[in-house]
Design a protein around this nucleic acid. Sequence first.
DNA 1: GCGTATGATTGAAT
DNA 2: ATTCAATCATACGC
Length: 377
Amino acid sequence: MATLPRPAPSPPAPRRPLRPDTSDVLQQIMAITDQSLDEAQARKHALNCHRMKPALFSVLCEIKEKTVVSICGIQDDDPPDAQLLRLGDMLLAEGVCRPEKTGRGGAVAGNGTATPGGCPNDNSIEHSDYRARLSQIRQIYHSELEKYEQACCEFTTHVTNLLQEQSKMRPVSPKEIERMVGAIHGKFGAIQMQLKQSTCKAVMMLRSRLLDARRKRQNFSKQATEVLNEYFYSHLSNPYPSEEAKEELARKGGITVSQVSNWFGNKRIQYKKNMGKLQEEAIIYTGKTAVDTNEVGVPGNHTSCLSTPSSGSSGPFPLPSAGDAFLTLRTLASLQPPAGGCCLQSQAQGSWQGATPLPATAPPAGDPGGINSNAAN
DNA sequence: GCGTATGATTGAAT
DNA sequence: ATTCAATCATACGC
């Protein structure tokens, strides 16, 4: 074998020349590199059988013992790489590190996220693509990981065998083998980290592409839009639903409370910007509400019975003149005091659109009555 | 493909 | 915490 016992780490310089037979053996060891494999094997055997071999070997062991101890302490017990742990945690959280399961429950990552578009029942449909792609990533990750682990294992075995073979010719302590194995694992750990990094990146990109709610915007159902619009236009003087009202609207529209808040935020701005155009919509919805009220015949219909911070509050808001008749009916209905009789005229927030120009159809500016004036008239 | 509508997000103001 | 205003990204109708 071409691998040779390296000359032992230079021993303390002897004061006297080595005995002729020892130096002879060393000479032979040094010369072995130049020989062919067969020759080397023969020489190795001869050296092994040499009468001085055990003595020389024990000396080498002794020297090695002295010189290697200091080296051993250097790299012992590497702490587990924090970054590797973090990446591992993340892949675990994303469902990539989990063992592949068959069936629909296999990939569960993403199921716990908020429902984009407000259709809870569509969750599984919307995310099926994400799950399929995540499953692909997981398969690639696991197959690559397996390859790396196999390669690492093979290489470790090879090196261990090599060192064990060498240990017949030179002193190789178990600790030394252990260190070598550790070093190999360290190198493969770096590769594993790269694999984890690229997998994390892939998962992040997938999430952003397929799960980002902004990218999966869905229009609300007709019913949700109607419920929201009815409330908005029937509370035009103060379209700020209370928390309870938001919950009620969310329940009725099959959307979330935060979606209701978003919708009202958007709607107020939209209305301000586009007041003239939206007046028509206002007429439709206020008319509809009024009809509903008449049909039901109960004061405080399904929209107006929703609690509002300023239900019935006054405000100089331009109400559509064409809907006034209906509004009057509706307003009268909504002005019915609730059982507690406490929310009428409460906590008016002032004119929410005060700074905006009034449309042509608006009642005379400065009319502080708004709905109440209509009701009073 | 393009313009508009619409739901969500973000940062500042309150 | 809530609202406003600007902005983004997608849905939708033409």
